[in-house]
Design a protein around this nucleic acid. Structure first.
Lengths: 192, 192
DNA sequence: TGCTAAGTGGAGGGCACCTCCGTATAATAG
DNA sequence: CTATTATACGGAGGTGCCCTCCACTTAGCA
């Protein structure tokens, strides 16, 4: 668990402005560095965020807490994409854009599967909460498309989630193969 | 690549007896320690093998080389089980015992999937060679059972290998679930 | 404007991977 | 059996990483 979940700690004053800014910078820096491998050092993350190493550790007591924060943020981004596409795009376009964003998210996770497993073990709430959030995002987009009649109705969000998720996690498929398979899945979903 | 593949280097004298003994001890010690997590230190491996740290590094220049050696050895063990069961056991018993040994091997690999991926990347020959060896082992046992008429003939070794392998690799299944599923698969294979 | 809780930053402890090189010894030749 | 030498051993110490600690700084409030 990181120091705060929202702008305020559970009791007492609101978090100071500089602390909040640094927190955001650190997550941002960590995500950028994780893009190219999980073997980034804590020092590198702090440096990139423009803060001291002590500050990094104040916000994230252990290395695994940084992983967790980046993961939480990624999940949030995917969920936000879902909420945006259903109001901003046509139903079919929405599911198309969303699934690609989802795959993009999931493929990134392949890199630190081990670290993620560790984080899940340490904190089961993380697993269930993010799973719920992601499943809700898939459901939102899928059901919108289904109600609009552009996607077949004999599939549930869990099935889509499971199919796409495990496809991305498989060590046997390349990124390109996953991309092509997403096209295939979309074709299969579409009502003709 | 470790220092030697067999008893002799590519040219020149045979390897010294003490070096050979230490090599075996090191692989043995590493396997035992890896059983309970890949975060074992090099010092711990050397100590358990009863050799100095320098000796460990003489045999395995990088940490990943130890992982590779243990993996090679594990694959070899599975292949040897295959060769033994086909001559020592009845055909049905043979496939039963072998598949359990195979699952046992594969489940152990879940622990250091990341490290293994790294080893494969560094040395593609490792991946193809072990895959070939394992597939050959499955084929030997399967075809023996098929010729004896105790196993259905409409399945190939690749299919069994893929099915059992991916089942074991899935992060979603527990060891117990895999064990039960192996029973299921065996039931499905048997000619009634 | 001054007070103080909240926050910052980096020196340094401890541990892990790996290198280097002086010492020891197995294998061979005389 | 002894001498020779390539081969192998072992561990002190270099480097880098995770993390702790605490003296210093600052945002936010009265």
């Amino acid at each position: 668990m990181t120091i705060q979940e929202s702008a305020t700690t559970s009791e007492g004053r609101p978090q100071r402005a500089d602390a909040r800014r640094n927190h955001e910078r650190l997550v941002e820096a960590a995500r950028e560095l994780f893009e190219e491998g999980t073997d980034t050092s804590m020092e590198a993350i702090a440096k990139r965020a423009g803060v001291g190493i002590g500050t990094l550790y104040r916000h994230f007591p252990k290395r695994i807490d940084v992983v967790e924060a980046v993961y939480r943020d990624d999940v949030e981004q995917v969920a936000i994409v879902a909420e945006r596409v259903v109001v901003e795009l046509e139903p079919w376009e929405a599911i198309d854009v969303f699934l690609h964003a989802f795959v993009n998210y999931a493929l990134g996770k392949r890199r630190f599967l081990n670290e993620l497993r560790e984080a899940f073990e340490k904190n089961p709430e993380l697993k269930s909460a993010s799973r719920e959030r992601l499943d809700g995002a898939v459901r939102l987009v899928l059901e919108t498309a289904q109600r609009a009649g552009v996607v077949r109705t004999d599939l549930t969000s869990e099935e889509i989630y499971g199919l796409v998720g495990s496809m991305c996690m498989s060590a046997l498929l390349t990124t390109e193969q996953c991309d092509r398979l997403i096209g295939l899945i979309l074709d299969g979903l579409r009502v003709r």
